[in-house]
């Protein structure tokens, strides 16, 4: 854990947002929790990072964070990706908050495109950065139409789309942002996490908050909520698997990234969750390329 910095002279409010904006976001969070999977509109503000860089997640974090929190930020599962480093630094600066890379130690984890491998616990909040909150947007461009579909629970379009995929490929050819049904009422985009992570959404002990800054929507999955990835009886939901193990830590059940090693097809597969991988290696697990320079890079100061 990195201790929080000394409080600097502030030109901006604590956690950047003004108090009125925080209240507006907090009210939206409460309604989002009360109606799991429903996209609550909110008066998203312009943030000091571009839309697409996590403005929704940053606003959620800013609205909930306090100096007693321990903050972790990951992008693609890793703590050391540039944007994760940048956002973590932002909150260390504007919210005097301690930061960590250890999943278990964090009280707030902000993420883009992954859910950590290590199971979350009660008392933790997972904040997702969401580019497109509308699960039906790829099928229907108009917000006026999709909002009506959610209002009247008309999700036929989504099932037709999955069925067409089965007809064309013999299976549901969907990889990330795989549609989910929350408590058998609201169709919800899990954000662009790989479907590998979908099973972690349901019955999770932590609070899951989703923020889409550009699209100005907040939604939530409370702890211990029923989340079903859509499928058909004869084509049940399935997740990604790998024939390879993690080259660094030997993990067999984590989401792997493919790292290209040269121009002739040499590659290695490594855990996308950098903290999960580092902890396994620290505990003595080793994969076939355990000595690779990538393993040394987690020691780089971030």
């Amino acid at each position: 854990m990195t201790a929080r910095p000394n409080e600097p002279e502030r030109y901006y409010n604590y956690a950047y947002l003004d108090e009125q904006t925080k209240r507006m976001i907090r009210r939206a969070i409460l309604k989002a929790l009360a109606i799991p999977g429903y996209q609550a509109p909110f008066g998203s503000r312009e943030m000091p990072v571009p839309y697409g860089w996590g403005t929704g997640g940053i606003q959620l974090t800013a609205a909930i964070i306090g100096p007693d929190d321990v903050y972790k930020c990951i992008d693609q599962g890793a703590d050391d990706t540039t944007n994760a480093v940048s956002i973590r630094r932002f909150f260390a600066q504007v919210a005097d908050v301690a930061t960590t890379e250890e999943t278990a130690e964090a009280t707030i984890i902000q993420t883009r495109h992954r859910i950590p491998e290590k199971g979350l616990t009660e008392g933790q909040v997972l904040v997702f950065q969401v580019p497109q909150p509308e699960p039906l947007r790829g099928l229907e461009a108009r917000e006026t139409e999709t909002r009506a579909m959610h209002a009247y629970e008309e999700y036929g379009l989504q099932y037709v789309s999955l069925y067409e995929s089965v007809a064309a490929h013999g299976y549901i050819a969907s990889t990330v942002g795989y549609p989910t049904m929350i408590e058998e009422r609201y169709l919800m985009s899990p954000s662009p996490i790989p479907k590998f992570d979908n099973p972690k959404l349901g019955q999770n002990p932590a609070i899951l908050l989703f923020g889409a800054g550009r699209e100005k929507r907040i939604y939530a999955v409370p702890p211990y909520t029923n989340v079903r990835s859509l499928d058909f009886e004869d084509h049940p939901f399935e997740t990604q698997t790998w024939e390879e193990d993690c080259a660094l830590c030997g993990a067999q059940e984590s989401y792997l990234d493919e790292v290209v090693l040269d121009d002739s097809g040499e590659r290695m597969f490594v855990c996308s969750d950098s903290n999960f991988c580092a902890e396994r290696r620290a505990a003595g697990h080793a994969g076939p390329m355990a000595g690779h320079q990538l393993a040394a890079l987690d020691k780089e100061p971030a």
Binding site: P50, Y51, N83, R114, V176
Partner: peptide, 19 residues
């Protein structure tokens, strides 16, 4: 909004790309 969303494609997407 437009500039942000178009340009966010240069952020890492390797989890998606692996899928």
């Amino acid at each position: 909004e437009a500039s942000g969303f178009v340009q966010h494609l240069k952020l890492p997407h390797y989890v998606d790309f692996q899928a």
